[in-house]
Design a binder for these strands. Structure first.
Length: 481
RNA sequence: GCUCCUGUAGUGUAGUUCGGCCAACCAUCUUGGCCUCUCGAGCCAAAGACACGGGUUCGAAUCCCGUCGGGAGCACCA
């Protein structure tokens, strides 16, 4: 009887996503390739993936690579970095598309909507457009005859009109109570160079229009997006109604912020250009690649994200939550080693009995055996404990107890006592630890570290989990405590 | 200002659809204790919340009204 209940409980755990009711599920994730995916984008990606997997559906990777803006630039290498991030997260997708490859489709429907007289070419300046929108005023371009619209549209496409001089706008309602919904722009002119199609196109759709077309054409059943994009729902619905198309369902999730962490791809792009960051793997970017470097496991990211469910509340969560998920995964795997940050040498006073110290590679798994440490009269200990425990008795773990007196340590015994135990080393490798803020912490690590390989995640006792990067000058990246 | 969304412990969530089984779940964090020769892990325990005010009702976290708070949109970015 008890077994019966236990089983039931386990089956119910971790199900924070509301079910979706549909026979068929097709969803899409639409990253904008301005940089690699970061922890924030992971929410969009993983929720899509999770829903599709649960419903045995189809997932589309759709690069939302329209031309962007000054502040949001396309980055040619981002396409592959995004793919790499998705693979790392074990996201499975079935089809891949690029907005930049579908321009003719958008033009076709753009023309159609113009012919239906549901849109118009507007030659207002950006400022006057904004002001009129604010006041709910109609501009003189709104009622121009259809032929004139089509003619101007052709001239836009031919590149005869300069950037900023004309846009195509949807005729929603300039007096709509929601100012955000007043005659939004559908297409605009940009003569910037695109990493995939160069200067072939000078008219680019905005996301509301391209999505309205593609979500229909590709047969999306559910559209998952952040709360910040809800107005796009209504834009899409408006356009679908115009064309008489069926409507997919919308799902929303709230904004996610990491406490004290800035996740701005455009800002990182700038810092990259200015040379402040030298790679997208820089630990400060929080890109998936950087998390991988830190030894964060993709499963930890997934657990972390799915734990928020589909709530539309805005959340601010501390990174320690991610770390605890990760620790769960790596703690049983990571072997233990000694690392002395900022070492101070002390001299031991008294007789030394054993000539070697034996310490388990993993305290919970004796099968992994022991590592041996040479003992001697002069040992290094971390400066922190050296400073804080003067005059007190502490234990050099698995070796001896000492009473600190300046740079001397008087040996008081060898038995294991219930006092502070710290790491120590007679000698060792120079080790550098790359911290999440990109600073390097120097210290010495035990020579047994040479038995590890790059990519291994180990724990520096009393210091934290690190991932081995290079062995020659020994370099590790810090994950978390 | 206008439009939309949202308010359960420090943090994040379950419960809100169909009011009672909720003196409110789980995780994390914190604090004690046990265990362990790590400040890691494990085990045990404690602490901690229904934003506020009205109303409906025998009964409200759940329904209604109001107030207050938080967020987003009002870009020729996504």
């Amino acid at each position: 009887m008890p077994e019966f209940f236990e089983e039931e409980e386990e089956g119910e755990e971790e199900d924070k996503l509301p079910d979706i009711e549909a026979e068929e599920v097709k969803m899409r994730m639409a990253p904008y390739p301005s940089g690699p995916l970061h922890i924030g984008n992971a929410r969009m990606v993983l929720l899509n993936d999770e829903y599709v997997k649960r419903n045995d559906g189809t997932l589309v990777l759709f690069y939302d690579d329209t031309i962007g803006s000054e502040t949001k630039r396309l980055l040619p290498e981002a396409y592959d970095m995004i793919k790499e991030g998705l693979e790392w997260l074990n996201v499975e997708w079935h089809e891949t598309y690029y907005k930049s490859q579908r321009m003719d489709i958008y033009y076709k429907y753009g023309k159609k909507i113009l012919e239906m007289n549901e849109a118009y070419v507007c030659e207002c300046s950006q400022e006057s457009l904004r002001e009129k929108r604010e006041r709910g005023e109609v501009c003189e371009h709104r009622d121009r005859p259809g032929e004139e619209n089509l003619e101007l549209w052709d001239r836009m496409l031919d590149g005869e009109i300069e950037e900023g001089d004309a846009v195509m706008r949807l005729k929603t309602d300039m007096e709509h109570p929601d100012p955000a919904f007043r005659d939004r722009v559908l297409f605009r002119i940009s003569k910037n160079e695109h990493p995939k199609v160069g200067k072939k196109y000078s008219v680019w759709p905005l996301l509301e229009f391209s999505w309205a077309v593609d979500d229909h054409l590709l047969g999306m059943t559910h559209i998952l997006r952040g709360k910040d994009l809800v107005i796009e729902d209504r834009m899409e619905e408006y356009i679908w109604d115009l064309f008489g198309w069926e409507k997919p369902e919308f799902l929303h999730y709230g904004m996610l912020r990491l406490k004290d962490i800035n996740l701005s791809k455009s800002e990182f792009q700038r810092k990259m250009a200015e040379g402040e960051f030298d790679s997208w793997e820089d630990l400060r970017t929080w890109s998936l690649q950087s998390l991988r470097r830190r030894g964060i496991q993709p499963e930890a990211v997934r657990d972390f994200i799915l734990d928020f469910g589909m709530s539309e509340t805005d959340i601010e969560v501390a990174p320690s939550k991610l770390y605890s998920k990760n620790r769960e995964i790596i703690d049983p795997e990571a072997n233990r080693y000694f690392f002395i940050p900022d070492p101070v040498k002390i001299e031991l006073i008294g007789d030394i009995k054993p000539d070697k110290a034996k310490i388990a590679r993993h305290p919970s798994d004796p099968d992994r055996g022991y590592r041996e440490l040479q003992v001697g009269k002069e040992v290094y200990i971390p400066r922190k404990e050296f400073d804080e425990y003067q005059g007190e008795e502490i234990r050099l773990k698995n070796f001896c107890n000492v009473e600190l007196d300046g740079k001397e340590g008087k040996i008081t015994g060898f038995e294991n006592k219930d006092i502070l135990k710290i790491q120590w080393l007679l000698d060792g490798l120079d080790v550098k630890v790359e911290r999440p803020d990109a600073t390097l912490e120097k210290g010495i690590g035990e020579k047994n570290l040479l038995e590890t390989e790059p990519g291994d995640i180990v724990q520096f006792e009393r210091y934290g989990f690190v991932k081995v990067q290079e062995k020659d000058p020994f370099l590790v990246t810090f994950g978390h405590r």
